[in-house]
Each structure stands twice: as structure tokens, then as C-alpha cells.
């Protein structure tokens, strides 16, 4: 069971690891790292699904009849580009958050925002 489907197990373990980091860690950069691991696990899921047993790389050559499916690779090429853009944008936003708040710890940022709300309320009353 495990040996037959080990590619799926790898994908699931990575997926859960990444997802857990996104949810549990307060550090904004570590969240992005978790998100990247999470996305990468899906890439592995796709790529491993394209493998055909006994198949070679999908390049036409004499004497070869079984090829692996290249389409998942192509799809994931696009998804990787999307992932890189997401990471870059996330890091750019974190850089600006650091400039504005002086921290990248989510809890401290929330505390600062709460203070601001209280100030608003006082000004209103």
C-alpha cells in the first residue's frame, strides 16, 4: 500500500507540513515558506501522475513505444510561474509591512492595529 503509492504519500506529507506552517507560524516570511512548500507538494502530485510505467521521456526516438505523459509537466510549468509570482509579491508586501510596522510578527502587528482602533474610538467619543 505504502510502497505502491509512495509518490502520493510524499505529496500529502509535504502538503500537510506546508499547510501547518501557514496556519501555525506567526512569522510572515515563514508563512510564505509554508505556502511555497504547500504549492510544491501539488506540483509533485501533478508531475508524478504523468509518469507511465516503463515509459521514457517524451522525445520521439527509434525503438521506443512507451512515453510518459508530458502534459502535467507543461501545466506545472505554468503553475510554477504563478507560484514564483505569488512568493515575490508576498515578500514585497512583507518588506513594506516591515517598513510600516517595524516587525514581521503577526501577533505584534495585530496588537498595533488593535491599539489604533482604540485610538479611533477615543477620538470618536
Amino acid at each position: 500500500m505504502f510502497a505502491d503509492y509512495y509518490n502520493y504519500w510524499v505529496a500529502i506529507i509535504l502538503m500537510m507540513l506546508g499547510f501547518y506552517i501557514v496556519i501555525s507560524d506567526a512569522n510572515l516570511i515563514k508563512k510564505i515558506i509554508g505556502l511555497t512548500i504547500f504549492q510544491t507538494s501539488v506540483f509533485i502530485l501533478f508531475i508524478s501522475m504523468g509518469k507511465v510505467e516503463g515509459g521514457t521521456a517524451p522525445i520521439l526516438a527509434d525503438g521506443i513505444t512507451t512515453y510518459s505523459n508530458p502534459l502535467p509537466h507543461v501545466l506545472i510549468l505554468t503553475a510554477i510561474v504563478v507560484g514564483v509570482a505569488t512568493t515575490a509579491l508576498g515578500l514585497a508586501i512583507i518588506a513594506r509591512i516591515h517598513r510600516e510596522y517595524g516587525t514581521i510578527d503577526e501577533n505584534i502587528i495585530h496588537a498595533q492595529d488593535e491599539e489604533e482602533y482604540e485610538d479611533d474610538d477615543e477620538a470618536a467619543s
Partner: peptide, 30 residues
């Protein structure tokens, strides 16, 4: 400056959502 944290939060949740959709597409393709 809260726009930055709002955007970041949207980025995290939006990417998780999109990745879930990608998993769904992958399973269907499989």
C-alpha cells in the same frame, strides 16, 4: 498601512484557495 496586512492576508488565503482548485483539477485530470 492596514491595506498591507489586508493584502497579505488575502494573498495567503487566496493562494490556498487557488491551490485547492489546482488539486481538484489535478485529481480530475488523473
Amino acid at each position: 498601512r492596514k491595506a498591507l496586512t489586508a493584502s497579505y492576508q488575502y494573498l495567503i488565503m487566496g493562494t490556498i484557495g487557488a491551490t485547492f482548485i489546482l488539486i481538484g483539477v489535478g485529481l480530475l485530470y488523473m
